[in-house]
Structure formats: structure tokens, C-alpha cells
Design a protein around this nucleic acid. Structure first.
Lengths: 159, 159
DNA sequence: TCCATATATATACGTGCATATGTAAATGCT
DNA sequence: AGCATTTACATATGCACGTATATATATGGA
């Protein structure tokens, strides 16, 4: 039961994620993007979100990290923020033309990375991996919800 | 080809890794451990490594992050460092009794997390996921090696 | 209308990871 | 032996992520 811990899906996923992030980061850097930018860029381009809050939800990160990322992306000329005329607390976020122009290349880079990493996989195997991961993520979300409602911060644990 | 990027194994793996890390972090915190500590703890307990360099290699992280983690682990009473009498540059790193005593609980926590996350998976599916991830990681290592030798820092790109 | 609450964002701080670079000890070659 | 190189580690800096908390604007109920 000892070495086993480092052979579990949990640890393998962590290794895979760090490796893939490192690879993608290196390839995206020449384009002026980072790996974490992509959900934001895609959401903005597709109109799936335009506020910090919605972007955080879309990317499944907390609000402060999203705020920091948006600050860096604004600093680097990838996005613009204009105060929302209807809500003094909020800003509408838009892609800059430069970011939009380079986005297809960034997506292509990530697609290529996926192909590289799935070398030797049949289409069925690649699909199976995605399906298994999707189920695992669903379990993760479920467990996170349960833990959150049982961590003492919620008023009713007997829902 | 647009929404697709966020449905690729690369992105799914990233999501799964963050979710699993968050879950494990929350569960390990009461034991005084962090997720990243486990490879170090296991390697030290099993005698797989005892220097900073070997620990970094074992955990597959770079040397500076490992140095920082060891500094925090030493600060938190998980490890001790004694100067290597045979090599003035190096230190031998050992687990403290307290850390060793709590390690089995930490491993149990991670095993449980894996079980939670694999809920609904057959043994065959869990094994398949691990096998696919292992192959993916091998591809990742291969690509990383190729990119490293082609990034301009090497003297000969025509090996 | 006014105040309590909810919401959107900002800030502070800690961790994990990366790269780039500095320092000191060991090693090797002449 | 002496000096260049390699090695082990330390430090500086930056990004991504998390929690905890502050601030400002909306909003809703008495």
C-alpha cells in the first residue's frame, strides 16, 4: 500500500496535468498567451461570459485568481475592461483585436499538443480516456459539493 | 473546433488535477500535510532518495520548487536536514518521527480520495484509466525530451 | 426612506510550480 | 597544484491557484 499511492489515478493525473501545462506553456509563450488564458479567451470570443464572475465560473476557478489573471491579461493587451453602465460594481470584459487574431493559433497549438500526447492511442482509446475523465470530474464535483455542505460553514447539514 | 479545446484530454486532465488537489489538500490539512509533500514523504520513508536533488527527480519537479517545499517542511517539523559529512554542498534529509507517524493516515486519505473519485468505475475501468494516463505521461516525457533538445540551448540539433 | 443583506470586485497572504541566475564545494584536466 | 567545469543548493521573480477579508454598489424589507 506504500508505493501504490504514487500509482493512483490521482497522482497520475497530477503528473499528466503538470507535464501538459509545461508543454503548452512553452508553446503558447511565443504567441503571448498562457495556458490559463484559454478558457477566458474562448468564453469571451463565444460570448459565454463577459464579467469577471462569469469568467471565473466558466473557467472553474475562484474569483481572486480570475481577477489577478484578468489584470495581467489587461496589462498584456489581451483584454479590455469597461465599467458597466448599468451596474457600478461590474465591468464588461472584451477581447482586444490582437488577442482575437492570435486565438486561432493558440487553439491550434493546444490541439497539436493533445495529438502529440495521444500518440499511439486509437480514436476509441482517446474517446475512452475523455469519457473516464469526465466521469471522474463529475465524481469530484459531487464530492466537493458534499464536503462543502458538511464543513461547518453551512447552517443545515441534514438536507 | 472551438468549444472542442475545452473538451480535450489536456483540459479535462487539468480540471481533474485541480479538483483532486483541492479535495486532497482540504483532507490533508488536518494532518499537517500538503498534497505535494507526499512524494517527498514516501521517498524518504522508503529510502528512495535522501538529497534535495534526488527528491526533486523523484517528485518530478525542478530544484528550486523542491528547495522551497523542503524549507517549509523543515519549518513545519516534517523533515530534518543534516549536512552531508562527505559532501560540503549537500545535506541528508530525514523524516521526523512525527511526520513518519502521521504518514500512514495521509496515505489512507489519498487512497480514500481515489476511491471517492472512482465511484461507479469498475476495477477494469479504473485500471484502464491508469494505463491510459501512464501511456499519456510517457508521450509527454518523450515530447518534452524532444522539445528540450530542439529549443536552441543544445549545441547539436541534428543528432 | 433607511438599514441590513447580497453581490461584484479588490487586496493580502500562503502554496506550488516555473525560469533565470548566483554561490560554494567537488571534480577533472593539464 | 591550479584553474575551468560541473554539481548542489540558494535566491529572485513571476504566474496560477487557494482562503480570508475588505470595499463599494445594489437590492429588499420594515
Amino acid at each position: 500500500m506504500d508505493l501504490d499511492v504514487l500509482s493512483t489515478p490521482g497522482h497520475l493525473i497530477s503528473l499528466a496535468a503538470r507535464g501538459f501545462a509545461r508543454l503548452s506553456e512553452a508553446r503558447l509563450k511565443p504567441l503571448g498567451f498562457g495556458v490559463g488564458h484559454l478558457p477566458v479567451l474562448v468564453a469571451l470570443r463565444d460570448g459565454k461570459a463577459s464579467t469577471q464572475r462569469d469568467l471565473a465560473r466558466f473557467a472553474k476557478v475562484e474569483q481572486p485568481p480570475m481577477a489577478q489573471m484578468l489584470a495581467r491579461m489587461e496589462r498584456d493587451g489581451l483584454i479590455r475592461r469597461v465599467p458597466d453602465p448599468a451596474d457600478g460594481r461590474s465591468s464588461r470584459i472584451t477581447l482586444t483585436p490582437a488577442a482575437e487574431a492570435r486565438l486561432p493559433d493558440a487553439i491550434a497549438v493546444l490541439i497539436r499538443g493533445n495529438c502529440d500526447v495521444l500518440r499511439g492511442f486509437t480514436d476509441a482509446e482517446a474517446g475512452l480516456l475523455a469519457a473516464l475523465l469526465t466521469r471522474l470530474i463529475a465524481n469530484l464535483d459531487r464530492v466537493a459539493t458534499v464536503e462543502a455542505s458538511a464543513d461547518g460553514s453551512g447552517p443545515n447539514t441534514d438536507d
